[in-house]
Nucleic acid binder design. Sequence first.
DNA 1: ACCTGAACACCGTTCAAGT
DNA 2: ACCTGAACACCGTTCAAGT
Lengths: 220, 220
Amino acid sequence: MALTRSDVVDAAIGILDEYGLGDLTMRRLAASLGVQPGALYWHVANKQALLGAVADRILEHLDDDMPTGDWDLRFNELAHRLRAALLAHRDGAEVVAAAHSLRTGQGGTLALLSQVLTDAGFTPAEAELAALAVLHYVLGHTADEQGHAPSETLARTAGTPAAGDTASPAGLATPGTATPGTAEGAAGGPQTSDSPLAGETARFGFGLSVFVDGLRARLT
Amino acid sequence: MALTRSDVVDAAIGILDEYGLGDLTMRRLAASLGVQPGALYWHVANKQALLGAVADRILEHLDDDMPTGDWDLRFNELAHRLRAALLAHRDGAEVVAAAHSLRTGQGGTLALLSQVLTDAGFTPAEAELAALAVLHYVLGHTADEQGHAPSETLARTAGTPAAGDTASPAGLATPGTATPGTAEGAAGGPQTSDSPLAGETARFGFGLSVFVDGLRARLT
DNA sequence: ACCTGAACACCGTTCAAGT
DNA sequence: ACCTGAACACCGTTCAAGT
């Protein structure tokens, strides 16, 4: 049966999760589909476009069933969901960053965050800038996590969360994030597991809340 | 005369400024030095190490003649200097990001920002997290600027700054930043040049000040 | 100590030609 | 419409051998 563009993206995500971005080459992808490298170019313009499609897939359904409530609650929820979506795939943050997919991507992650802030009372220009700023923060922080941190995305497998650490801020259910590829540095580093900032989610939340506090301060 | 490691880094920066990161290959670098590709590996372990050395060079002297004063003033100064240093070389932000050079780099940009915040009264853990957060912001924002914005780093050539826009926040002299490579999108996009957030430096400063406001709010 | 020559094992992309 | 075969123009890295 003939290959489909969606098949190509599926296979790409498969390679990503199993071997990482460094091994996601057009030639390996073709091989995994049992096809010649040139065949891919019928379904996808080039590698950049493929990465864009992969990124769009990673960011799909980011705003499904969004809670209603204060802007800061919704803003936090979106940021945490974004991080969770990136963590759900090996090198997810790097892929999305490489694809420049947050600004333009189909889902419009930038637009989502921006909208919450204009609802809150910011001008469109301010809202977009602030949304971009936290987007950069989330991408950077999550890329760091995926670069050299002990994984933190099982949650479904074990009953007790790894170290008192869940991806969602409140008790809100995260969208269907399957288990990711194995992390490279599984041997725990010097994790100062006593401070209130231990746990990657808490560390992430700290930077996020500083930013949200700064935003709140300008609303008065 | 025999090549020196410093020569190699110099030549790498030359290629970077003239042709960009995409054209900075070991083979091109070797050719520009009139040497065989293999010769480079006597001076540099691999490409990653080379990029690290280039990044270190870009970030050199970031804290020369730092002003004294309130932590927020010094924090802002460092952030603006960092952006200026990145803008001083084509694809500077991407190089530094790729080199993971802010955390570990010789200069210790992370340590510098962190120190300012511990001086301000934050715990070491909080200070490092907050410093990392703005580092991510600066890198992301500046990478965006360098990716598709009309260049903004002449300042020395013309008497009147391009659009009421300088890299330094106050009248503080920036360290020796030479003129960068030409920007790719020289044709001006839809620049809404009326709002108070026009001008890349103002846009950068907005996100930065939101974060600093958030930090100040926790000091009470 | 420093570099050449030459190879190894890859890349992304194009494109005539086949079915 | 969809894919093969085969090439083009590259990569980073290694390493014996030369000087």
